[in-house]
Design a protein around this nucleic acid. Structure first.
Length: 445
RNA sequence: GUGGUUGUAGCUCAGCUGGUUAGAGCGUCGGUUUGUGGUUCCGAAAGUCGCCGGUUCGAACCCGGUCUUCCACCCCA
């Protein structure tokens, strides 16, 4: 049976060059993580649905990929739901596993499960694919990679500062000019409390978060739909535009203790982190349901791409798994978007697609045998090298090297066999030299 | 999940209001070049026009369904 080769919606294949580029991003970020003392962990792609469900809000639950139970699952299915063809209700009796939606909830599970084996404060990073049954759009896929660093078990604000520095350093290493925006859920809560509309905290946040997209007018509209009065809306906008922490703390005085606390936290973080591109953004609301303190959002300058990294502090996540209350704080790099940005700016290192240093041209027979011996010597000297496997046309072999971005080729013909030397050609300049083994290794090293 | 949009050679796209054997550029392969790639020049292969069904004497083109792409909403990396 012949099948047409095609991909699942929202997933992609990666060509070797793309993998090189992705690895470059990951390695760059990883190096920074390690420099700051983070250790890498791994968890399964599949988790129990009970682990995942209810952590991302109702919307998030809908986007979970569920896995059908093995075996004769229908015989164990709930009969009534089956009869009624109630897809939503039947799920519980035919599916108990799902694909992870992010790396943070699995981390919470992991930390509680291994709390006696871990060394706290636990600083880990985790890179891996996650899945969301979202409708794909540009830069949004159903399978994508997350690249997270989190600190569990410490409420110190030093951690926030460290993560901010990691963001700054990683993007600097990638050669990207970014703006790192910070806010605090406590400040948001304070603003909303001060205006006296706390019952609609979540809805208001969602509306405020759209500021960039739909503008002040659009947000006003949404707030009116939430039955806020004109005075309340005016007051909200006024508070959300105060970027001076001192002034903001003053407006919280005697009105919102939590707001004041948020201002204190924010001040403390920023004082230890005097980078120019780190700014307090009071209207920044973005973040998942579980964030409780500081939140981050990083946007690139010069490219319309939106957020390329985000994060926040979450105080209650481990509680859901019966663990003692351990606060966590973490950031996540949107590597798919970072890739697109680097691509658009063509900001890749020059040697990104080079892996093999030298190709030995195959002229067959004796040349091949000599080439084979040479190949072993080169590899013993740690020079990434290949021998073309077929006695193919020279044109074919040369263009193979060309396409693979191999900087050197070696010719071994009659002349070279006789003298025991090799002709080394530099592909970029066309320059060609006859060298002995020692010299050859010296040049290629 | 809601509304819209896209789908023609490996890739990017033409194909006028439905009319006989569906085109181009790039790429691939072969030759020009019997030990020198990235430039020329010549030639070739390659498409049941996303899939299924319908209307019609006749469909890449019209209609319905389905899948896919992208966009907006929801939400989000």
């Amino acid at each position: 049976m012949k099948v047409k080769p095609r991909l699942v919606k929202g997933t992609r294949d990666f060509l070797p060059e793309q993998v090189n580029k992705r690895k470059y991003i990951l390695n760059t970020i990883q190096t920074v993580f390690k420099k700051f003392g983070f250790q890498e962990i791994e968890t399964p792609a599949i988790e129990l649905l009970e682990t995942l469900t209810g952590k991302y809000g109702e919307e998030g639950d809908k986007l979970l990929f569920k896995i059908l139970n093995s075996g004769d699952f229908l015989s164990k299915a709930d009969d009534q739901h089956l009869q009624e063809k109630d897809s939503k209700a039947i799920t519980a009796s035919i599916s108990e596993k799902g694909l992870r939606y992010d790396l943070t909830v699995p981390l919470a599970r992991y930390v509680v499960q291994h709390q006696n084996e871990l060394n706290f404060p636990f600083k880990r990073f985790h890179i891996g694919p996650v899945w969301r049954a979202d409708r794909p759009q540009k830069g949004r896929y159903r399978e994508f990679f997350q690249c997270d660093a989190d600190i569990i078990g410490s409420t110190s604000l030093l951690n926030e500062t460290e993560l901010t520095l990691i963001l700054a350093e990683a993007f600097e290493a990638l050669g990207l000019s970014v703006k790192i925006q910070l806010n605090n859920r406590k400040i948001l809560e304070g603003i909303i409390e001060t205006v006296g509309v706390s019952e609609q905290y979540k809805e208001i946040l969602i509306a405020i978060d759209k500021m960039d997209k739909i503008g002040e007018e659009g947000v006003t509209n949404e707030l009116q739909n939430l039955q806020l009065t004109a005075e309340q809306i005016t007051e909200l906008f006024a508070l959300f535009s105060i970027t001076d922490l001192h002034a903001l703390a003053n407006s919280f005085k005697d009105k919102s203790a939590i707001g004041e606390e948020g201002c204190e936290e924010m001040t403390s973080i920023l004082n230890k982190c005097s980078k120019k591109n780190v700014v307090f953004a009071p209207a920044l609301a973005r973040g998942l349901d579980y964030y409780t303190g500081t939140i981050w959002e990083v946007v690139v300058n010069d490219v319309a791409m939106g957020t390329i990294a985000a994060g926040g502090r979450y105080d209650n996540l481990t509680e859901m798994f019966g663990g003692q209350n351990m606060s966590g704080v973490g950031i996540s790099f949107g590597i798919e978007r970072i890739y697109d940005v680097l691509e658009e700016l063509n900001q890749w290192p020059a040697d990104i697609t080079t892996s093999t240093k030298v190709l030995i041209i195959n002229f067959g027979n004796e040349g091949e045998n000599v080439g084979w011996q040479l190949l072993q010597s080169l590899r013993n000297s740690n020079i990434p090298s290949e021998l073309f496997p077929d006695d193919a046309k020279l044109k074919k072999q040369m263009s193979y090297a060309d396409k693979k971005n191999i900087p050197y080729v070696i010719f071994i013909g009659e002349e070279e066999i006789k003298t025991g030397k090799y002709s080394l050609k530099a592909m970029t300049t066309g320059e060609q030299n006859v060298l002995g083994l020692e010299e050859l290794i010296e040049v290629l090293k």
